[in-house]
Computed example of a mutant assay.
Amino acid sequence: MRAIIVEKPGGPGALEIAEVGAPDPGPGQVRIRVAAAAVNPVDAATRSGALADAGLMPPIGSRGPIGIGWDVAGTVEAVGPDAARFAPGDAVIGLRDRLDVPLGAYADAIVLDASAVARAPRSASAAEAATLPLNGLTASQALDLLDLPSGSTLLVTGAAGAVGGFAVELAVQRGLRVVAAAAASDEALVRGLGAEWFVPRGVHLGDAVRALVPGGADGALDAALLSVAALDAVRSGGAFTAVAGGPAVPVPLRGIAVHNVWIKADGARLEELSALVDAGRLTLRVAGTFPLAEAVKAHERLEAGGLRGRLVLTAR
């Protein structure tokens, strides 16, 4: 079968197509025939060696080629012992949350722990469904860390992005009042997702938010990695969660509880998100599709920026 691998870090051209044997599911695992795999910034950071440089994984090539891709949508084709919740033929989505593995979601098939897999939304295409696991779970788990009670105000930066868009919708469903920060051209989009207030890019974020919410927002979900600029918009004693590590996580000034969401696979939560899609309460956005063999072109488009939604690699 085909798989996209990286042997040496570099630009999009570092992605290679390799012929590998189909993996067998072990205890508690399922093998999924991949119909679609989302293309995420973390894939580019893995390919380039940035994650290895940050100490999040061994250097690429030190233990052989690594696979690329976290999000998958497809069909179960084999089930290992103790994975009876799924059967061959089930349409599923799943998340591969390990970095240093020889096969990722950019492949014809992938083996995942059954606990990382959920039934796919019935109302979505495979390409649409593949955009949900990583970004939907990141938004949901970030909101868990913030732990804001209903009626609280929440700033979401990067609100038009993949994580930010899910965060706006999920926050509103938790009873939060959302201040969305995004490009001016995205105002209609984020208001359509449920944001009550809007702050355009290019203004002083702290002052703009405080003009809308006196004293500052109760919390911030910083999907745009604005760090201290977003922290400044939070009231003293509030909460802040960044969706990346390093300098994106600011010092907890003014008694603000600062967190960093490190994504983990969660099939049960993913099942809930899938149900929200079918209920029309969660929006899936595909920015474009490429066949698996054109993964290099997909990464080139990702690095060009300006996307709304996720690019997706498809089986054909």
Rank of each mutant, 00 (worst) to 15 (best):
W70C: 05
P252G: 03
G80S: 07
A195T: 12
A127V: 11
E187R: 10
V251A: 07
A304N: 09
G280V: 14
G246H: 11
A315R: 12
A45M: 15
V286H: 09
G237S: 06
G305F: 09
L226G: 07
E128A: 14
P291W: 07
G215M: 10
P133M: 12
G136C: 10
I263P: 03
P102D: 04
V163C: 15
Y106K: 00
R210P: 03
V168G: 05
V42T: 12
K264A: 15
L253P: 01
D144F: 12
A171L: 12
D222T: 09
R201F: 05
E196P: 01
I60L: 06
I4E: 00
I4L: 00
A229K: 05
H259C: 11
V117R: 01
A162C: 11
D100N: 14
A105K: 00
E272C: 10
L99V: 12
A142W: 04
A217H: 03
V277Y: 02
R310H: 09
S62F: 06
E303T: 11
S125W: 11
Y106L: 00
A3Q: 01
W70M: 11
A220G: 07
D43H: 00
W70T: 07
G206R: 03
E303M: 11
V34T: 13
A295D: 01
A230I: 09
V277G: 05
V72D: 00
V312N: 03
I60K: 01
S125K: 11
V172T: 13
V92I: 10
A116V: 05
A223M: 10
L170I: 15
